[in-house]
Amino acid sequence: MKIDRTLLDKIAHLSRLEFDEKDAEKMMKDMTAIVDWVEKLKEVNTDGVEPLTTMSHEINMLREDEVKPHLDHEAALLNAPKKDDVYFRVPKVLE
């Protein structure tokens, strides 16, 4: 299956990524090769096979719903690229 520019742009938008002309070319080429290669799985008969959706051996691990200390405000904001005293800051969302 060929990953063309329209499809790449669509996936890139969903992934919140963007590519210039040169990088897009390389990405389309690599992705097409990889997608063609994984299509090999079509050869495997999986009729009646349930998808395997979890690898954990533990089922419904529950605990008491107790209030415990969590990351405090200061620590949570410490790594923010832009913040004020109480909030993360981002560009204006509403006009």
Binding site: L7, L8, M27, M31, V35
Partner: peptide, 12 residues
């Protein structure tokens, strides 16, 4: 770029 490629493949 490798990370971006894998994110794109996964999203696809």
């Amino acid at each position: 770029k490798e990370v971006q490629k894998r994110i794109l493949l996964g999203t696809f």
